[in-house]
Nucleic acid binder design. Structure first.
Lengths: 210, 210
DNA sequence: GCTGAAACAGACTGGACAGTCTGTTTGTAA
DNA sequence: TTACAAACAGACTGTCCAGTCTGTTTCAGC
């Protein structure tokens, strides 16, 4: 086997991810990606069949990292015994990392991908849909456990679960519109407070993840 | 004065709005806009100095319509006496129109505008920021009145007010990701329920706007 | 050290695109 | 009815861009 190309491929993906998140997919030319990655056209089309294939690879990698984040939140709060407090601890996990999230990226790749019709048609949206369903399923599980035996009427549990994704994406856009990255943390905090009120969990009692 | 060009200009804006919302700004060529609008290059560059100027005009018009929606919600619920119930009626106003909103457009122009760095740099984001601040200010007013004299701790009222914008934009993306427009109504419903729980407003008691 | 295939490098191409330019039409006012 | 300016129409241009193609380098296995 010749020279290991995986590092170069990763460099291309890294550069492309930043550019696409910040500028959008259509506004990001392959040449600019190559310039940022410090590589050549030959290398690019060796690793990716087309620019669309890059978008797909980019999204696949991003979805995987996103699901890692989901599991990280689940793992970090696995020891919280009370199901309702578990939900709040789970939400607080991301709230605590809100600034960190916005420090690492100025927007969500999902926003860029979902904006462009050509990417939707190319099936890239299916990958995002998978991530949405994963978050929905796991959070709905947490919520069902929390609602069990309580008088609180949460409405459709899956819709409530989807509100976490909704809050993430909406907050990304709010940050972009205002230019203030602290809105991510603030909006995740709003979500935690609202769900806490709906579940009847007192703020001060709620377990905090380590 | 010669032929009135305002109708042609509006046709260009209409066509461009649909295309930009669905495909994104960079992925929408002027030629495709002209084709959809049934007009010519000469007409386009007579009405707009550049493609960037089109984006600005598009956003200005969209912001104006957005603020009309804000005022419509305020007006429709102006007769609700109890401030807390007013908030819920206000949210329910948009929830009731969720399907209608997604029927008219497959996404929000704000998403497309905020995705592209070149538009942010061109000051287009400032227009969106103005809309965000208008929603925030009006809803914060409603929330402050509702919180006044109640024991409920809503946290930062402006952050909670921003959660309405967050929910709208997040729901647009959720609809796009899943391909299901009914999520808009569902997410607005989740928001209403959560805020209702936080304010201690019983669902069945809450006034419904006509 | 020779071979073969993977990993690159970079010149090149055909098309698409934003914007220009030269006209032509339209309506109004004198 | 002519003069004039706004409102168009559409051919044209230079640039950028995705993708191609022809090489050259790298390295494992023999």
């Amino acid at each position: 086997m010749p020279k290991d190309g995986s590092t170069n491929r990763a460099r291309i993906l890294d550069a492309a991810e930043q550019l696409v998140i910040d500028h959008g997919y259509a506004a990001t030319s392959v040449d600019r990606v190559l310039e940022a990655a410090g590589t050549s056209k030959g290398a690019f089309f060796h690793h990716f069949d087309s620019k669309l294939a890059l978008a797909r690879a980019l999204t696949e990698r991003y979805v995987a990292a996103d699901l890692d984040q989901l599991n990280a939140g689940l793992d970090a709060t696995a020891d919280v015994a009370d199901p309702a407090e578990r939900v709040i601890a789970f939400l607080r996990y991301y709230e605590d990392r809100g600034d960190e999230i916005m420090g690492a990226q100025s927007n969500c790749l999902y926003v860029a991908v979902l904006t462009e019709r050509q990417l939707l048609d190319a099936g890239t949206a299916d990958l995002v849909r998978g991530a949405v369903q994963a978050w929905r399923a796991e959070i709905a599980r947490l919520l069902s456990a929390a609602a069990d035996g309580r008088a609180t009427d949460l409405g459709d549990v899956e819709d409530l679960a989807d509100h976490v994704f909704t809050t993430f994406e909406g907050a990304f856009l709010l940050c972009r519109a205002t230019g203030s990255p602290q809105h991510m943390r603030a909006q995740l905090g709003v979500l935690r407070r609202l769900v806490g009120a709906a579940l009847g969990v007192d703020d001060r009692d709620a377990a905090r993840s380590t």
